[in-house]
């Protein structure tokens, strides 16, 4: 009976450890936190690699992106707000890329939560998304980021290789200019 108890407790412990990422670590990253360790696949498209400042390879972390600030949008092809927000987010990208003082310093990436490669491609093509999107078909990255509703924006400042969150908020924004101004101000860029 003692042996049975030990086995059951072992299984339970394993479940607690594996289940803890679902149950306890599901808070979105807070301002001041170090951005969670997420492994992204290096994009196959050379344009995206150039934009992110990455060379060919398999994986990268957010701090590997050649930028001072990275804005992460968690989105989904199936999310009406993300669909409506897409043109404004693209506008933020354009404002950055057209401004020599910001270009290269602020980069955007998107995590397509629960979307397959095909679904991510549909979203990208429908809305002409110019920045890299990363599919997250099994919600793995989404879980790490607290299972947030979408769209969700996380601003990350990278200093000396440490990615620190300076903005973490659900929902979109009214004006691309205002959002960008806020990113600059809050990041201390």
């Amino acid at each position: 009976m003692k042996k049975y108890f030990v086995v059951v407790m072992g299984i339970v412990l394993c479940l607690v450890v594996s289940g803890s990422s679902l149950a306890f670590d599901t808070k979105p990253p807070a301002v001041g936190d170090v951005f969670p360790e997420i492994t992204f696949s290096i994009p196959g498209e050379s344009d995206y690699r150039t934009y992110l400042g990455l060379s060919k390879g398999e994986y990268f972390s957010i701090q590997d992106i050649k930028a001072k600030v990275v804005v992460v949008e968690v989105l989904s092809m199936y999310c009406p707000h993300c669909q409506r927000e897409a043109p404004r987010v693209n506008q933020v990208y354009d404002l950055i890329e057209k401004d020599p003082s910001l270009r290269g310093k602020i980069k955007l990436i998107g995590i397509a939560a629960g979307n397959s490669t095909y679904e991510k491609k549909v979203f990208r093509e429908r809305y002409g998304v110019p920045f890299p999107l990363f599919e997250d078909a099994d919600f793995e990255l989404h879980d790490i980021l607290g299972g947030v509703r979408t769209p969700y924006f996380i601003g990350v400042r990278i200093d000396s290789g440490v990615p620190r969150v300076f903005y973490s908020k659900l929902g979109g924004f009214e004006s691309a200019d205002e959002f960008l101004r806020m990113m600059i101000e809050l990041s201390g860029l």
Binding site: L22, A23, S76, D143, G147, R149, T150
Partner: peptide, 14 residues
């Protein structure tokens, strides 16, 4: 309870 509760859906804020 924890395992079931933690299911992610990726729900839209709409």
């Amino acid at each position: 309870l924890l395992v079931l509760h933690g299911t992610a859906y990726g729900l839209s804020d709409v």
